[in-house]
Amino acid sequence: MSDEKLDLPQGTLDLLILKAVSLGPMHGWAISERIRDVSRATLQIPQGSLYPALHRLERRGWITAEWGASDNNRRAKYYQLTRSGRSQLQAEADAWRSLTAAVSLVLDMG
């Protein structure tokens, strides 16, 4: 467990999950691994919130779940982005970019 681990700001977890799933069907463990790897272990998703979040997104209809066989032939639940999930991802990503851009502008002033 590295010390550079950051707490996720409110609402970003959904964005990260949507993004991860947008790359292809993925099970819960793979999603958390993928996010950790890509963020160079800076972003670590608390296991306690991953599954509630996945189920919440499924309920909203942004992702769908399907049972399939994993690499080592075990039964695993694969999540996949839906069409409305894709537009949601687009919207949230845009909002995030403009927010961070705005925040940097403010931080860089003076």
């Binding site: 463990w29 599954y51 049972w67 994993s70 080592n72 075990r74 039964r75 639940k77």
Partner: peptide, 16 residues
Amino acid sequence: NDLDDELRFHIEQEAK
């Protein structure tokens, strides 16, 4: 049951 399976799978992957 599904939820049980899903969580157990996660732990097994982590252990592996």
